[in-house]
Simulated scan of single mutants.
Amino acid sequence: MTTPKTLARIAGALYLIVAVFTIFAGLVNASIVESEDATATTDNIRDSATLFRVGFVSELLGATVFLLTGMALYLLLKHVNQPAAAAMVTFVAVSVAIQSLNLLNQNAALTVATGEDHTATFGPTGSAQLTLLFADLQHNGYLIAQTYFGLWLLPLGYLVVRSGYFPKMLGVLLMIGCLGHLVDVFARLLAPDFGADISPFAMTPAAVAELSFAVWLLVKAVRIPEADTAHDGDRVAAYR
């Protein structure tokens, strides 16, 4: 039977792998896609097609590992509150499904940008506009998935607080991170310019919370209560 400490370290390692793959994919897209310039975006994709494909695969791998992370944390924390743990892993599954399906838009942008048939059919300008349309759809689809990236932190934070395995402040930070994700998503969807301006501030708590939690899982694992006997005969919890 897998011990809580082993499960925690597995989850922590998976969580950090998710961060590496996802951040890399985001940096690739940010360096290639220019949302206001269809021609530049098309040229960038065509000139960096291999890098764009690597970014695509990186995000797909990150999504897959994120699902495994949620499953590992479910096994670790389901004894605390089974409905909350089920809600947590359900939010993860929904976000992964949306994120994975949304990658079709990125693949479509690559196909149009690099396909001679599309240029011949739509013309250089039409082909470039279609490429940018799919790239923008991929960005907006990721925002929709981000809604669930945020929501999973709410039950996770609750479970962290109640488990006794971790410092309660970690759980509080995770729940604040949920709010930050949601503020970022809805601000970007309702007022794109304003959302872009406040995004770094909204996302900082979530980034700090998730990175801190992942490192704690990997390095500290969990604190396991041990039964000990005090001088007055009462039983107290001591943490190793």
Score class of each variant (00 low, 15 high):
Gly123Pro: 08
Leu218Trp: 03
Leu179Cys: 12
Ile17Leu: 14
Ala86His: 08
Ile144His: 03
Ser35Glu: 14
Asp234Leu: 04
Ala207Glu: 09
Phe21Gly: 11
Gly26Leu: 13
Ala227Gly: 11
Val208Glu: 02
Gln138His: 15
Thr22Ala: 09
Gly70Arg: 06
Cys178Tyr: 03
Tyr239Leu: 08
Tyr74Pro: 14
Ala8Ser: 05
Leu143Gly: 00
His231Thr: 10
Leu182Arg: 06
Leu110Gln: 06
Gly62Tyr: 07
Met1Asn: 05
Ala49Cys: 00
Phe213Gln: 11
Phe56Tyr: 04
Leu174Thr: 10
Gly26Ile: 13
Val208Asp: 04
Gly180Leu: 05
Asn140Glu: 09
Leu67Glu: 13
Ala93Pro: 01
Leu14Gln: 04
Val89Pro: 03
Ala8Asp: 02
Ala30Pro: 12
Ser100His: 15
Gly26Pro: 07
Gly62Trp: 06
Asp234Lys: 10
Gly233Cys: 01
Leu110Phe: 07
Leu154Glu: 08
Ser31Glu: 10
Ile176His: 08
Val215Lys: 02
Ala237Pro: 07
Leu153Glu: 04
Arg9Lys: 10
Phe91Tyr: 05
Val92Ser: 04
Gly26Ser: 09
Leu170Gln: 00
Lys5Met: 01
His181Phe: 14
Phe194Leu: 12
Ala8Pro: 05
Leu7Val: 06
Gly70Ala: 06
Tyr239Phe: 12
Thr121Pro: 06
Glu116Ser: 09
Gly126Cys: 03
Val236Gly: 04
Leu75Cys: 12
Ser95Asp: 00
Thr147Gly: 11
Ser48Cys: 04
Gly180Ile: 06
Leu179Gly: 12
Asn29Pro: 07
Gln138Val: 08
Ala221Pro: 00
Asn107Trp: 15
Ala49Ser: 02
Gly157Gln: 09
Val18His: 01
Thr69Gly: 10
Ala191Thr: 15
Ile23Asp: 01
Asn102Leu: 14
Leu132Cys: 08
Ile45His: 00
Pro200Met: 00
Leu154Ala: 15
Thr204Lys: 15
Val94Asn: 05
Asp117Cys: 08
Glu116Leu: 14
Ile198Pro: 05
Val92Gln: 02
Gly164Ser: 14
Ala109Pro: 06
Met175Leu: 09
Val57Lys: 00
Leu14Gly: 03
Val28Glu: 02
His181Leu: 08
Lys168Asn: 04
Trp152Phe: 14
Ile198Cys: 02
Cys178Val: 08
Ala63Gly: 15
Pro83Met: 13
